[in-house]
Write a protein that binds this DNA or RNA. Structure first.
Lengths: 138, 138
DNA sequence: CCATACATGACAAAAATTGTCATGTATGGC
DNA sequence: GCCATACATGACAATTTTTGTCATGTATGG
């Protein structure tokens, strides 16, 4: 029941990207150094973030990655979901085909409530909120 | 970011134990059959639940396991914590020695808030609540 | 055309999860 | 006391997930 390194890395990378003016493109190698994420692993994470349209990538010389949307419209949940998939505290929340008791089971309804409480917090804060309180000293 | 099998098994086992009058002792083999948990694995889980004083175990002939407290005073969180350890959505929440930025990092504070929201739901429901809506047809 | 930089999939090491099993200990009933 | 029943515990192992590395390919600016 814990965030993976992948998620943590993604957050750190996004925090670094968010510290630049919208539209800025920085190479992955630079993100890797500043967010302290293994470069080769970051390339995979970047792939996930790009697929989820959280960042955009530019190939070729002077290419790199940057935010795909303004930081005000990217929630913390968006970032986590992009790299770790949707949050399901319990398998039974993934769909009624997993657990036929969904409609009557008391445990199911509590997991559901807990999950909603968690997601509510994570969707209530944007990358802009996070960046406002985080400064990079380079 | 998901409950493990261990946690799910523990909940199911507790649900079965909770369906009996307080004080009842049933053998692990019986719990295994009714909660549908591999017996040998259940023995390990039972060890954790006993160590956390969530259940009590009785050795010897006509021994077995039973609730250590009335189901009204056992929360869903108690059960999860007993087998999976305390919930930490992010490593940085485990203590200030893990992440020195705890006091100023905006991400930290949001994880903290999300974790509290999650724990609040899980501690608000007792085993009695769960059992009230779950019936065993034997 | 070539240096730079992203894209992607194969591969692999490490860790966590999910079990099994053997050995030992305790207890009730005969 | 003896023995069948049942929990206690730690060693061992299979599987899955996580966490990476690396090679190959593609795109682009100069």
């Amino acid at each position: 029941m814990q965030l993976t390194n992948t998620g943590e890395y993604a957050l750190r990378a996004m925090l670094y990207l968010g510290s630049h003016p919208m539209g800025t493109i920085v190479p992955i190698s630079e993100v890797s150094k500043n967010a302290i994420v293994p470069e080769n692993f970051l390339r995979k994470i970047v792939g996930l973030l790009a697929k989820a349209r959280v960042i955009r990538s530019v190939r070729g010389a002077s290419g790199g990655v940057g935010l795909a949307k303004p930081p005000e419209s990217l929630t913390m949940y968006d970032i986590i979901e992009a790299v770790e998939g949707k949050i399901y505290l319990n398998q039974c929340l993934m769909g009624s085909h997993i657990c036929a008791l969904s409609s009557t089971c008391a445990v199911h309804s509590i997991w559901c409530e807990a999950q909603e409480a968690l997601k509510k917090v994570l969707t209530s804060r944007t990358l802009a909120d996070l960046c406002a309180l985080t400064t990079y000293t380079t």
